[in-house]
Nucleic acid binder design. Structure first.
Lengths: 99, 99
DNA sequence: TCGTATGTACGACAACGTACGTACAGTTGC
DNA sequence: GCAACTGTACGTACGTTGTCGTACATACGA
């Protein structure tokens, strides 16, 4: 189900596409600022759960986030180590940039 | 016709989406490495002119490239100054990253 | 055990993206 | 003038993306 790419499998264009959506960029910023969250507590916006599930998948498949089951929750976190190792400086410049 | 955004109008998600396509990423790298080129001399790949026109528009509208008419040619160049000013470090990390 | 909470799976649908062929418009040079 | 060159405009086809509702699976707690 949850197929996370290995560090070496993470592709630049996938990461850029994933973060090239305003909602997903926001998600990445929240995870960067606040650390691990469950799916329901990342955003306040009135977005349907099925839409969010879609965005978790895009971010996970691109290698931007980890998705770790924990009880009945699914904990989300940024793959900062892997992204920094593979694309040095990229995540910082994206997360710190103005919109 | 050719509507380039001002430096302040360049949006991060537009830039990320534009560079989140392998062909456009390649184009940006060629322009970075070799400087100003006309449309026909950027890529060797057998891609139709109308498809390329589409990609020039995406890159131009996102603020990634300048498109400057010159005689019967259209000279393309990276907007490095603007991108570096607005999103420090972003372009370098993208262009230097592995695919 | 049974209801509640959390999140996924699936199907639908409009909008967008990417590719092409063809036709056209401007510039250059013979 | 006119043919060749450079690139855009337009129409088209087809896959992808983003959104939702509904149904479902799993885990927790009373």
């Amino acid at each position: 189900m949850a197929r996370h790419p290995t560090r070496e499998q993470i592709e630049l264009t996938d990461v850029l596409s994933a973060l090239g959506n305003p909602l997903r960029l926001k998600i990445a910023r929240v995870l960067d600022a606040h650390g691990e969250r469950n799916c329901g507590s990342v955003l306040d916006a009135p977005i349907s759960k099925s839409t969010l599930t879609h965005h978790w998948r895009v971010l996970r498949d691109a290698g931007v986030i980890w998705q770790k089951p924990s009880g009945r929750e699914n904990l989300l976190s940024l793959r900062r180590d892997d992204l920094d190792a593979r694309f040095p400086g990229l995540l910082d410049s994206v997360l710190r940039a103005p919109d």
